[in-house]
């Protein structure tokens, strides 16, 4: 395989990753939306949609591994291939967390959620989605600045998470009747916090890809 074909398959892999990224972005949005509206059907849709994401994941991962095994790329090329796998893995984990959120919605069906900290969830979800979007955009354009800015948003998410955590605990302490709701709310905020963490992994991968630096940003 010549240089041209090698570049072409790298490009194809990147496009596949972006396609999967689009699906994951949507899964995150849909799962939180379903949770906020207590829409069990939409939640089921997210869970079913995850199969497609998983398929794509193994497919792209195979492609990456095959490329590394047969072409034995070195230096920058190796970095590109390895970053691809990293981003892919982060995306797959995010999709799994969306499924977790959708499951919580299903479990909560019939228990209207009315806890005070609930109103923080959309804000948190929006930040997390913004991070995923910026991370993938930074990947497309190898935009180190965007990746850095995106990673900085993780602090905000963490802050809201700790806030929601404390608030929910005190709600549950006040009224044991809301313990179930509270527990699911804690789960969902935790999943969102994890999604944001995985987004920073994408940012780090982009920085590594563009500069060769390896750095922990969260």
């Amino acid at each position: 395989m010549g240089r041209y074909l090698f570049d072409k398959s790298l490009r194809e892999i990147q496009n596949d990753i972006l396609r999967m990224g689009g699906l994951v972005e949507k899964a995150i949005y849909d799962s939180v939306d379903a949770f906020m509206n207590q829409d069990v059907t939409a939640a089921a849709g997210v869970i079913m949609g995850d199969e497609r994401i998983d398929e794509l994941f193994t497919e792209i991962e195979d492609k990456c591994i095959k490329l590394i095994a047969t072409q034995q790329p070195i230096a920058r090329d190796l970095r590109v291939a390895v970053t691809g796998i990293k981003i892919l893995t982060s995306l797959e984990r995010m999709a799994d967390h969306s499924v977790d959120i959708a499951r919580s919605t299903m479990c909560l069906a019939g228990h209207p959620m009315a806890l005070r900290p609930l109103q923080e969830i959309p804000r948190m979800a929006r930040l997390a989605r913004q991070m995923v979007k910026d991370g993938l955009d930074a990947y497309v354009h190898r935009d180190v600045n965007k990746a850095r800015e995106m990673c900085a948003m993780d602090d905000q998410v963490d802050f809201i998470f700790s806030h929601v955590f404390r608030d929910t605990i005190s709600c549950m302490a006040e009224d044991p009747g809301v313990v179930t709701q509270g527990a699911y709310l804690l789960y969902v905020s935790r999943y969102l916090e994890r999604i944001a963490d995985h987004a920073t992994n994408i940012g780090e991968a982009v920085i590594y890809l563009a500069t060769g630096e390896r750095r922990e940003l969260n």
């Binding site: 396609r19 689009g22 972005e25 354009h141 935009d143």
Partner: peptide, 23 residues
């Protein structure tokens, strides 16, 4: 989409709109 046109030129369409239906 909060992107710059300069950056997009020459990129594959998935790089600009990550949407399977669109593609």
């Amino acid at each position: 989409l909060n992107i710059s046109g300069e950056q997009c030129r020459g990129k594959d369409i998935v790089g600009v709109i990550r949407h399977l239906d669109f593609e």
